[in-house]
Amino acid sequence: MGSIHLNKVSKVFGDLKVIPSLDLEINEGEFVVFVGPSGCGKSTLLRLIAGLEDLSGGTISIDGNDVTNAPPAKRGLAMVFQSYALYPHMSVRKNIAFPLKMAGEDKATIDKKVEDAARVLNLTDYLERKPGQLSGGQRQRVAIGRAIVRQPTAFLFDEPLSNLDAALRVTMRLEISELHHELGTTMIYVTHDQVEAMTMADKIVVLNRGNIEQVGSPMELYNHPRNLFVAGFIGSPKMNFVEGKDAQAFGAPTIGIRPEHLSYSSSEGAWKGKVGVAEHLGSDTFCHVHTENSGTMTLRVSGEAGLKHGDTIYLTPEESRIHRFDDKGLAIA
């Protein structure tokens, strides 16, 4: 239960082609993350799957059934919205019970399921409150509670953590991952935060202007980005790109090297540069080095680096970690 198949799905708003044509296979029980820059069509794609938007072309099937023209309620999916979309005048209990009530379940069953969901999500003490009297994280949990009580075939999340502060985001991230392991239900999760994508996903779908740039596991995308876009999007801090003569020396029009795969020395190396700003995270230091020919590069040093602003250093890439790209920006195998 919970496999979703998109076949040549496209979406047009007026003259604007948001999603040109897209195929995607989501397997049962997978945690799939759609990631991409703002405005690339992530939400639109999710809403197409949910049935909240009509398709301009193509078909969608869930568990082998064609649901292209089925209304949202008939698709057996549950969605958690970015704004949570809780019903403001209903108590938490009524919010969570609403889908069950609409499904016509009897009172005793509803009560039991709501209590269960509340226990899982640590909401038991808040059941009689209104959404307005909850914190952001609690509201988030209510929205998730409303989604899980129906036991949907798949969950859809649209940037559910973007309204939370950094610490809470980390906690909720873990909770959602935990929930996924517990329920084993397919989850589709939209985010523009590549850290969320890397940490949560079984499978990441990188979108750019409505096109899929690459689909794969987090490590696949990290180790073998298919093109410059994916290489630049996945990984933090961003991959360094080198073009021109310096790149030719390594046998490609463009090469990419991640900040963690650069080593430095004060006497010799491939690229000479001056140390600029250093960002100290404690565990790591990110140094921005202004090189002579290849612009600013980021260097990641474990622990504290003894580099000072203005020092002259040489950077050397780890040979086996160099990503080579051709003129069109595609990775050279």
């Binding site: 049935g51 949202p72 309620a73 549950a78 969605m79 979309a85 809780l86 019903y87 129906r150």
Partner: peptide, 9 residues
Amino acid sequence: QIEAAEMDG
């Protein structure tokens, strides 16, 4: 909210 209700059946 309306869309959420729609999805809730």
